[in-house]
Design a protein around this nucleic acid. Sequence first.
DNA 1: GTTGAAATTAGGTCGGT
DNA 2: ACCGACCTAATTTCAAC
Lengths: 152, 152
Amino acid sequence: MDQLDRKIIAELRNNGRATYAELGRTVGLSASSVHERVGKLEAAGVITGYHAVVDPRRVGLGVTALVGIQPTDTASDDEVAVALGELPEVESCYAVAGDEAFVVKVRVETVDELERTLGRLRRIDGVARTHTTVVLSTRFEGRPNNTGLDQG
Amino acid sequence: MDQLDRKIIAELRNNGRATYAELGRTVGLSASSVHERVGKLEAAGVITGYHAVVDPRRVGLGVTALVGIQPTDTASDDEVAVALGELPEVESCYAVAGDEAFVVKVRVETVDELERTLGRLRRIDGVARTHTTVVLSTRFEGRPNNTGLDQG
DNA sequence: GTTGAAATTAGGTCGGT
DNA sequence: ACCGACCTAATTTCAAC
């Protein structure tokens, strides 16, 4: 991982569909060198994937909530995490320090659906309580700004 | 936005570098038709971008925290949000219901840097208190699973 | 690791349906 | 809206350095 790799990664974080030729022009390498470097970064697990980002509201997912999950005394964190992963409305899942075992990000169409989703969360074995924070607006999300990649 | 568009979007969320020919094969259209549809989805703001996803730990960002931001009585939410956006270590920012005005996701290299970042957050005009939840592990994140796109 | 050349494939435009 | 045909440009492989 040298500076050229970092530049390539930064560029691909900004534009995941940049061509190798384009990347080569911005970093000062041939397309085939970039191709080889990107392949190695993917193989090494540095680049884990490429994804189109969609405006959630325009695909009918206007309601976002952050839900803290308090576990029961006997809960297995791993089993709870797997169960959380089985709900498609749970987009992200973080195991956290504090009295909650997890914080999950939930995206649904309506508050009605949020209510149903919270019911499903509470019915998971090992879940004692949930604490829900409704998102009113997403100011920004997933910015590619502090990777240590941009500044050099 | 018909079912074909939804299929294309679902595919691009899974693989942001899928070629138009590949997309055409999976949805049953020609590459040129897919090209036209994707162009319209981008122009309509449904698809907002394409990004490579990087394993944060492999680029020296091993510490993640969720930070609730309590505002002062006189705070302007918009100004606080702008100030939060100026810190590169703040990756996402949500305005939320409840006694906190915002929840932000912070990513830094070390807990030392987390401490410094929290100091910077508290020094923002309009920020009264912060409440930090340290992420112990990310079980999954940003899954493209509940877009209403996948189930057809 | 890097390159340039060669073969293959994709992108992008457009006329026709 | 979709397709096929077309030309341009990119990907991908590879021998050579």
